[in-house]
């Protein structure tokens, strides 16, 4: 077996003196989609944030290898440029900064990192417009402020659009499906499916089965009380949908 794209070993993390991740072990090989499910407060968002390098978390033990290198040693922007993308649960508004500007700056930061020439304005526009079509977004959106006055659904679409333009090798999508109506969910799911490729991996952090109806996972993990308490195939998600988490929590206790 080849080295997994993402390999987490005994990861322990604190916020203040509360241990939010208590020894996570997870391997995500290239080409696969993994779903991480679990009740509220189980540590799902903490895991996403720690992988992306958000300040405020203290790693007290364990390792994370991304494409074979020590992910935790890299500053947040380096992780992004190396191809680690976080789809935010609550994308922040940046008033006055237009979407196209941020996205082009992001794409060029990654290209410079790979010693590729910066993308010119015309090529960039063509690329974004093709991805926007896929996400069924209006072109007027490009000149609007980043997430400024967006509805919850628009913000999530925007996250997926950014992902499709940046083409990361690892996308961690933190509850991208929450707050979406059925139609928007389908569009977002189709966008995620587009990114699936043999050299990429996707981690879906979600509460619900419904996204997984459209993006079939290779593996499903249940995160509870800061630990992965059960892993299985797609059928595990269906079972959780039917039975909830309590039976697992009782087992684990």
């Amino acid at each position: 077996m080849t080295t997994p794209l993402l390999s987490i070993r005994d990861l322990r993390v604190r916020i203040g003196d509360r241990e939010v991740l208590q020894g996570i072990n997870l391997d995500v090989p290239a080409g696969q989609v993994h779903a991480i499910m679990g009740p509220n407060g189980s540590g799902k968002s903490s895991l996403s944030h720690v992988l992306a390098g958000k300040p405020g978390y203290t790693v007290t033990g364990g390792t994370v290898l991304f494409k074979g290198q020590d992910l935790l040693a890299l500053p947040a922007e380096e992780r992004a440029r190396e191809g680690m993308f976080l789809g935010f649960q609550y994308p922040v508004e940046i008033p006055g900064v237009n979407n196209a500007y941020l996205l082009r700056a992001a794409l060029n930061a990654a290209r410079r990192h790979r010693s590729e020439p910066e993308v010119d304005a015309f090529d960039f526009l063509a690329l974004v417009k093709s991805r926007m079509q896929l996400m069924r977004m209006d072109e007027a959106f490009l000149s609007r402020g980043v997430n400024e006055g967006f509805s919850g659904g628009e913000k999530k679409r925007n996250e997926i659009l950014q992902m499709l333009v940046l083409e990361p090798s690892l996308a961690v999508l933190d509850e991208t499906d929450s707050g979406l109506d059925i139609d928007a969910l389908k569009v977002v799911a189709a966008g995620i499916q587009t990114l699936r490729a043999p050299d990429r991996a996707i981690v879906l952090v979600t509460h619900y089965q419904r996204l997984l109806d459209h993006v079939a996972p290779d593996q499903v993990h249940v995160l509870a009380r800061g630990r992965i308490i059960k892993s299985g195939g797609p059928e595990l998600a269906l079972e959780l949908e039917r039975r909830g988490y309590d039976w697992l929590l009782d087992d684990a206790a």
Binding site: V92, I94, G96, L102, A105
Partner: peptide, 24 residues
């Protein structure tokens, strides 16, 4: 953090945010 997660350097991120603030 949002900007850093998109690969922008700290300085570029600040300039971007301040530039947006001054846009009007």
């Amino acid at each position: 953090f949002y900007c850093l997660q998109r690969g922008l350097s700290q300085e570029d991120a600040i300039n971007l945010i301040v530039g947006g603030f001054c846009k009007t």
